[in-house]
Write a protein that binds this DNA or RNA. Structure first.
Lengths: 119, 119
DNA sequence: CAGAATCCGATGCGATACTG
DNA sequence: CAGTATCGCATCGGATTCTG
C-alpha cells in the first residue's frame, strides 16, 4: 500500500522515468539483492538453499526481496513437480533481464576492487 | 551517530567488506547522488547551481548527499577566492574515483535503456 | 518446504524556518 | 551563498511467532 501522493514517492517516480541509471539502480537496491542474484547464478536456486548460503538473512526479508526481484522481472519462480513428494517446492531462475544484469554487477565489482579502502 | 551495535548495521558492514559490488552500490545509493554526479560532470559545480538544475531537491538533502559523496572520496569541496567578494563560495569537483564511476553509471544506464518498461 | 503475520527500531527523505 | 535545526512521515530491515 503506497502513498502515491507523497512527494517522496513522486520524486522517486519521476527520477526513474527519465533517468535510466536511477531506474536500474532502484531494482538492485536492497540489502541482499546482489547477493541473491549472485547465488542464483551459482545454482543455489531454492528458498532453503538461499537461506543456507546467506545465513544472515531472515526468512521474511528473503521472501520480500525475492518477491521484488520477481515483480521487477529479474527472476522467475516456478513450482517443482516432485513425483512422490509433490510438496511446495519452487525454483527461482534468472530471466534474460536478470542475466544481463551481470554486466552491471561486474562493473560495480571492478570499481570496488580498485577503490575500496583496505580495511 | 550510528548504532554500531545493531544487526542492521553490522550486516551492512560485513556485506561491504567482502562484496565489492555491494560496497560500490552503497556509495551511489541515495536518491539524488547519481543526478548530482552527472550534473557535476556537466560543470554545475556549485551549491546554488545544483539547486537550480535539480529543483526537486531540498537544501537539506543536497547538503546531506554532497557531504556523503565527499566523505566517500568521490568529490572534493574547495573554497573559491573571490577578489572583492570573498564570501562563502565553494566548488565541488569530481575526484579520480568519482570520474571512474562514470563507467559504472554508463552500464546502469545501458541496462536501463534496454530493459526499462515503456511508460 | 516456503512462507505470512505482527511488531519495532533505524534510516531516508521532504517541509519549513533560521543563520554566518 | 551555502548551508544548519527541527520536525514528521514513510520505508527498510531484523526478531519472533505461526501456518498451509
Amino acid at each position: 500500500m503506497r502513498k502515491t501522493s507523497s512527494t517522496n514517492y513522486s520524486n522517486a517516480q519521476e527520477l526513474h522515468d527519465h533517468c535510466e541509471a536511477a531506474y536500474t539502480l532502484s531494482l538492485i537496491s536492497g540489502r541482499w539483492k546482489l547477493t541473491i542474484l549472485v547465488e542464483l547464478t551459482k545454482g543455489n536456486n531454492r528458498f532453503s538453499l538461499l537461506k543456507q548460503v546467506i545465513p544472515a538473512i531472515t526468512e521474511r526479508v528473503l521472501a520480500l526481496q525475492l518477491g521484488q526481484l520477481e515483480k521487477d522481472g529479474l527472476i522467475i519462480k516456478s513450482a517443482v513437480q516432485g513425483r512422490n513428494t509433490p510438496k511446495n517446492t519452487y525454483v527461482y531462475t534468472l530471466t534474460e533481464k536478470g542475466v544481463e544484469l551481470q554486466t552491471v554487477i561486474n562493473s560495480l565489482e571492478t570499481w570496488g576492487k580498485r577503490h575500496q579502502p583496505v580495511t
